[in-house]
Write a protein that binds this DNA or RNA. Sequence first.
DNA 1: ACATGGTGTGAGACCGGTATCATTAGCTTT
DNA 2: AAAGCTAATGATACCGGTCTCACACCATGT
Lengths: 377, 377
Amino acid sequence: MYVLIRVNRIAKDFEPEKIEVSEMSEKSSSPTVADVAREAKVSKATAARVLGGYGIASDSARRVVMEAADRLGYQPNDLARSMSTGRSGLVGVIVGDIENAFFSQAVRGISDTLRAADLNLIISNSSERLSEEVEMVSVLLRQRVAGLIVAPTDSRHVNHLKAALVAGTPVVTIDRHAPELAADAICGEDRESIGRVLSRLQGAGHRHVAYVTAMETRDGKLGRLEDIGISAVRERIAGFLEHMREAGVENPADLAFIGATGDDETTSVVTRILEHSPPITAILASDSLIGARVFRELSDRGLSLPQDMSLVSWFDADWSRVTSPRISVVDQPTYQFGQKAAERLIARLQGDASPPKLFVIPTPLLDRGTIGPAKTG
Amino acid sequence: MYVLIRVNRIAKDFEPEKIEVSEMSEKSSSPTVADVAREAKVSKATAARVLGGYGIASDSARRVVMEAADRLGYQPNDLARSMSTGRSGLVGVIVGDIENAFFSQAVRGISDTLRAADLNLIISNSSERLSEEVEMVSVLLRQRVAGLIVAPTDSRHVNHLKAALVAGTPVVTIDRHAPELAADAICGEDRESIGRVLSRLQGAGHRHVAYVTAMETRDGKLGRLEDIGISAVRERIAGFLEHMREAGVENPADLAFIGATGDDETTSVVTRILEHSPPITAILASDSLIGARVFRELSDRGLSLPQDMSLVSWFDADWSRVTSPRISVVDQPTYQFGQKAAERLIARLQGDASPPKLFVIPTPLLDRGTIGPAKTG
DNA sequence: ACATGGTGTGAGACCGGTATCATTAGCTTT
DNA sequence: AAAGCTAATGATACCGGTCTCACACCATGT
């Protein structure tokens, strides 16, 4: 087409015009209700009623419109429909990392549940960065999503989510809870689960237990608890410290190892754990990526579980069932997290205006084979 | 206005009117360009030019509009924008199962690449069912997505994808190839990889090698190759049969075990493999779910790898690096699959009209520890 | 003084649906 | 037969943007 325009500028040749017309007709996109109406020789309003399935229409009108519609291959345009109704059948989902089975399982739960309610989902990755999360919320709101399901990166910075709420877009948080935010939240038993694990370990004689997590801080040290953005991480560390203190361990903060953000970092954490004095006899891994890495490090160093070291990981990932012995895990049924989150969102979309609620999904300890008696001396 | 009519019909009470009116003003959704224009005391066209970042506007106009915009908290409506431009910033992705790391990794690759081009993605799960895939394509086209990335469930039934193409929506297939479809495809080296694995095994003395895959057929038997819907499965089985035949194995079809669709089914396949005569000395698992299940079955039966049995799985999943020995795998870098797919789609969206092409991503054999000499007798 | 040209602006059509209202046709009611 | 009612239909405003076009304005050139 641009070519033709150029031709017109150069000379007065008339041929190009004709070609233009034919190109126009060629690029005629999909037929609209108006086209169908014309074909069926009824008004646009009648065609729209039949095709949209609203209002009333006679059987004869219905027949003639439907015939015209599939003669033309009519496909409704949901964009236009959303615009005129104000409703959009899309739900925005923001997770830290879809590649992580923890989240991809949750997404599957969300997807299956939304589908049943005729909703689709737009997925976004925050990479656990607040700035990206803020950006994606904005993008999703511009798309006028019907609702949002978010795993908020920082429970203290939720203004972007608040804004969504006041604009009338329901929000449900998943895996994490932001008390400031008047939104439903679906969480695991973060505090309880760590208590359960520690009780079990202490029953087996463990005193010095390490907790390994991915959190980063400026100085690499565990600072004030209130400064931890991800609520699930904060709750578990708080539970860890509290429980260890109650058990009479002196400086429990020294046993919370943070910064296991990647493979190399986790390796160095494991080294520090093995060199720790007094000796550490059990390791808790806050997610399955860290768990897998810790397990490999321990095996590589020739340690056998649970004789030389006990290990408990969070999340029942595939890998934790193929090792020998199988790994003891805190089972976080994230598919259910997703299901519940989607259910709550749907309820909100259907007008449920009850006060926001925190739903806690049970996360039991599956003790398989990596909790043994504490190695003494 | 409508309110008055209703009120008049019911009674002469004026209160309802007020209430309705307040509700009206309350439900006033986010401000529009028209609102901003009014606030800035310019025309709608000028406000639109400034806010939409197109056309020309004087600095003074720009300033006054921007000020009005953030005084009102203006948020553009991408729905409306898409409708009037015809472009939508959404790409539809249809995979078999997001919960599967194979696909979730690919989705991450797609997501990261699309993001850089300012596109978002709508995810759908086909559950490897053609009917669902057809339905989702239709839903996505109704949403007027800019393009589609699909792992087609059945390479022989792609009319719904063809329809998308003729309607002008570019399509890229991932992991699978449908020759009938004039679309770019991103695949692994299905045929080559199985040849490579078999050569390696045959070099180690293996003759009777089993290939285990998830495909279902009506009678549970491997029928004609042309009847296999998923191209990657077909290619690999074809490669398997061909290579085995060349190596002088009599009825290679007896060594292709299909129907490993779930845990129980895989267990029964393993039983049949272990009871097979002549004895089978190596197992190939067509994906990581099957691989993990086969591995567990073998361990549970007290077999040790690779002494009693050799094992090669497709896809380098987390679990295959934590077993001892580590599993030899055909590495399918699905993140790259996704990246490449997104790149091709973006190219198409930018007008690339070159003939569709098949891109083959190298899928090398990572021989770690589960290929040993064939157990004799 | 008058044609030329470029810049900035406003009016309004348009995208493809939904939703409101007026109108007509067909039928009952008294 | 006139009035009343409902079912079916058509005309048209509207959602919130984009985009075309006409026009007003001011600076040049001759």
